[in-house]
Design a protein around this nucleic acid. Structure first.
Lengths: 107, 107
DNA sequence: ACGATATTCAACCATTTGGTTGACGAATTA
DNA sequence: TAATTCGTCAACCAAATGGTTGAATATCGT
């Protein structure tokens, strides 16, 4: 029932998860290292990472016993396009904007 | 515990609420009229409007027995600013996008 | 005053979220 | 082999969501 936009916005609606995303902006991180700054169990962080993964905002890859978390910022594209239609950009040409983004993604 | 950003993103994480916001882009609406296109009770819509109001995304003003709902698009500003820091893509390219549009217009 | 309209409130229900703890499996190191 | 580290799973809990129905409140038109 919940589409990609639901999942993305819901994933962003939590300060812990937003902080995790900010951390991953620097570099890929192991689950344990993601958890380190938080006063919360590893299991709780693991759940947060699951929510971010299901939303497509991060990806996780296991190498050896370490699971690496990687930011997937393009997954925010849908959210940003949606939300910006309410901002001051509402007069812009969105077909052109889409064409521009497609072009950016390919190039 | 939940700050403005939590409330805004959470409010946006539901297709019904997003559709309501889109409807209000056209014009202010009474609660009953907001509810009309949905196959859902008026009470349910009233709850959704409460969530949008608490998030600051709309305001409600009662005139007579009618409660008018008004979009407050500037409340999305915080969400836009936050989310844009991840869309290297989008952010870095607003200038590029404008250049692209200029080029489109001239070329 | 009365009936209709607009909206919310209260109680209920099922599901999800955000957290805990303890046990577990898998990979690494000694 | 044995101990340790990495991470998830399962069970549990409290609170919030997303919906229902029925009653209540407030305003309007007659």
């Amino acid at each position: 029932m919940s589409d990609a936009l639901d999942l993305a916005f819901a994933a962003l609606a939590d300060a812990t998860r937003r902080q995790i995303l900010t951390m991953l902006l620097e570099d890929d991180m192991a689950v344990t290292d993601v958890a380190e700054p938080f006063e919360m169990s590893l299991a709780a962080i693991s759940k947060h990472l699951g929510i971010l993964t299901r939303a497509g905002l991060i990806s996780q890859e296991k190498r050896g016993r370490v699971k690496w978390c990687k930011l997937e910022p393009q997954a925010m594209r849908g959210a940003i396009v949606w939300i910006e239609s309410f901002g001051q950009l509402e007069t812009l040409n969105y077909d052109a904007f889409e064409a521009f983004l497609d072009q950016e993604l390919q190039g």
